[in-house]
Amino acid sequence: MKGNLKIVVNSYGDPTHLVSLTERLPKPNHKQVRVRVLAAGVGWADIMARRGGYPLASKPPFTPGYDFTGVIDEIGSEVSDFNVGDHVVGLNPNFGCYSEYLCISSDFLVRFPKYLDPAEVCSLCLNYLTAHCMLFKKANIQPGQTILVHSAAGGVGSALVQLANLAGVKVLGTASHQKHDVVRRLGATHIDYQSQDFVEEVHAHFPEGVDAAFDPIGGEHLSRSYKALKRDGVLVSYGFSGKKYGGLFTMASGIAQVALLNMLPSRKKVLFCALPSQVKKDVIWYKEALTSLVKSLDRGRINPIITEIIPLEQASKAHQLLESGSTVGKIVLKCSTFPNEADFDNKGPNAA
């Protein structure tokens, strides 16, 4: 009988703490489908969870991974909106996507055309959906406005830049010097965070400040992003990673910091975006937004950057790459053979 290969964190630590485990195939309950996973996204939350710094993750042993694409191969008795063979993309708000097979409620699934690249579609679900939520649901950004995007060559950052450009928004993006070409090609004006003060650079370009800023770091960095805003501007925090791997104290301090900044008499607003909880709270928005992103990808309006596609059993290599800080865009785990695989080879140039 076929087994299910999955990646498990048995104890906190470096990437070697990701281990392979083969179990029996999972069985969907009456409201679930079973998906043969094609691609699973690798995100910074996975890194923090493996290091023990992500309070939203289960305690070990657990399987990381929020986002995936796959093909439905079994359906629960009460599922009527999907069929065996459907190609689907989804966010699993409970983690667990580093796996060959996954059982999940059909509420979290959206179909995509099978001719689309599963790796590119996978990047929509966490990276682009987070960007979409922050731009349009949180900051209510409008054409002609200005924004500051940190880590503009990263997975969420590059998605923010692309979606903002489509909306007619002017973008300043921070990145290290070696990633400036990527930021420029995406359509943003780059700021070298290693050698330039991004607050000063923002005000040099836009003396009153930007309409919105998006910060994944927290702490003093969040306070400086606040200074880059114009009056009535919006700052959206979407992580408290700090300089390392987060932690309960870092997250609690970050939440308190957001509250304190909102008490200042500046008319600026600070919001927080945690996509998994947002998805569980508003499934209708989630499915509509993700469907819209799939259509944009299908029409060639967005172009996800996939820097590496790595076999599932080499998940530790994917984590090493992401932790190195040298990558751009998205790293994806290949969990099963892609349909029409020859059409989706050589992702490297996509990141160039």
Rank of each mutant, 00 (worst) to 15 (best):
V169M: 01
E201S: 06
A318F: 00
V35H: 05
A252Y: 08
C103A: 12
N303M: 09
R224F: 06
D46E: 08
G242V: 12
L297K: 01
A139R: 00
D343L: 11
L148F: 10
V202L: 06
Q196C: 07
Y226K: 02
V71S: 00
H190M: 12
V89N: 08
G300K: 07
Y226S: 02
M48S: 14
N4E: 03
A352K: 06
D345E: 07
E200C: 08
L129N: 13
G325H: 04
Q196F: 08
A274D: 09
Y193E: 12
S123D: 02
P216C: 12
H190C: 13
Q194G: 04
S99D: 11
K243L: 15
P118M: 05
Q32L: 13
V121H: 01
S158Y: 02
L322V: 05
G329R: 01
Q196E: 15
Y226T: 00
K6P: 02
G90A: 07
G41E: 00
P265M: 11
L135K: 02
I217Y: 07
D343K: 10
S195W: 02
R299D: 15
A175V: 11
R185Y: 09
D343A: 14
F95W: 05
C273S: 15
Y238I: 10
G242C: 08
L25R: 04
D14T: 14
H150P: 00
K2T: 12
D232E: 08
R34N: 03
L21W: 08
G239K: 03
L229A: 13
D211F: 08
H177P: 07
V8N: 03
H132D: 11
L25Y: 03
S99Q: 06
I305G: 02
T69W: 00
A57T: 07
L56C: 09
E341V: 01
T69A: 01
A131V: 11
P311L: 02
Q145V: 09
L148I: 13
G154L: 08
L129H: 06
P61I: 13
T130W: 10
W285P: 01
G65F: 04
K227D: 14
P216S: 13
F68I: 02
E313T: 11
E23N: 13
A131N: 03
L91T: 00
D86A: 00
D215E: 14
V328N: 11
A188G: 10
C103K: 06
V88R: 06
V35D: 02
V234Q: 05
F272M: 12
T16E: 13
H319L: 15
D14Q: 14
A159N: 02
S225Q: 00
E120D: 08
G187H: 03
W285E: 03
G168M: 05
T327Y: 00
G65P: 03
V19G: 03
W285R: 14
L129Q: 06
S11P: 02
F206N: 02
H132E: 14
Q32S: 12
S326Y: 08
E220S: 14
K281Y: 10
D107H: 08
L271A: 13
S326C: 12
E100S: 11
F112Y: 14
V258H: 09
A175L: 10
G219M: 05
R185G: 09
